[in-house]
Amino acid sequence: MAAIDPFGDVVAGMRVQGPYTHVDEVNALAAWAGRAGESALRKRVADRIPEGVVEVKAVWADRGLDRGQRRALGAALDRCVVHVTSLLRARYGFVTAGEHAAEGYRTSGARSDWWIPAVPFPDDRYRTVPLWWDMRTYRSIAAEPQLTLIEAEQLALAAGDTELPADLTGAGGLA
């Protein structure tokens, strides 16, 4: 997924992998290798693979944008996890994120595996946690403003639109 500004420049995006067929395909597990919570997280992933697991990686937004634009793009990318998981016909979306970013994901319906300890990844400045979206339950978790936008965006995608209008994303279309 990529956010493109009115000039055609990519200003934010995310990379998605999956649906996976085996637990060892999940890149994020490397952060827990040899650490507390590794076996619990591997089991969570393995238990969910039969119903489809999509992993979101490398979520970013241009640091040159003003704070409001970055916030709007961040919220749009949080919602995009729901969209890519649905488009790839998986039941579960999965991301690992620093605790500072986890709340944004929760507003779009993610739940954390609170019993799996955070790890210092990519370095000791961060406490990284696993987060999951379940396509059957995320609506009951998502914040109302995000859910309203998710539903409008899903209607646009179902209609065949490959670009979401700026009034839905808050900053440029998502292509």
Rank of each mutant, 00 (worst) to 15 (best):
M1L: 14
R44A: 10
V56I: 12
V119P: 00
G18Q: 01
T169N: 07
R15W: 13
I150K: 06
D78C: 13
I49Y: 03
A156D: 04
D24V: 02
I49V: 13
T107L: 10
L164A: 05
D9L: 15
L168G: 04
G18A: 01
A156W: 06
L168A: 11
I49R: 02
G104K: 05
V82K: 02
R106I: 06
V81R: 01
M14H: 14
D134Q: 08
G64K: 08
R106H: 10
A166F: 05
R106A: 11
E144L: 14
Q17T: 02
T85A: 06
R79H: 03
D5K: 14
D62Y: 06
T169Y: 03
G64V: 05
R35M: 12
T85P: 02
D167K: 01
R67E: 12
R44V: 06
L29R: 05
W133V: 04
W32M: 03
R42K: 11
R67S: 12
D124L: 03
T137L: 08
A175L: 15
V129C: 09
L41I: 09
K43M: 07
A166C: 12
I150W: 08
A30D: 14
A58F: 04
H22T: 06
F121E: 14
K57Y: 07
V81N: 02
R111N: 12
R139G: 05
A72P: 00
R79W: 02
R63W: 11
T137N: 07
G64W: 04
I150P: 10
G172N: 07
L29T: 06
Y105E: 04
R127S: 15
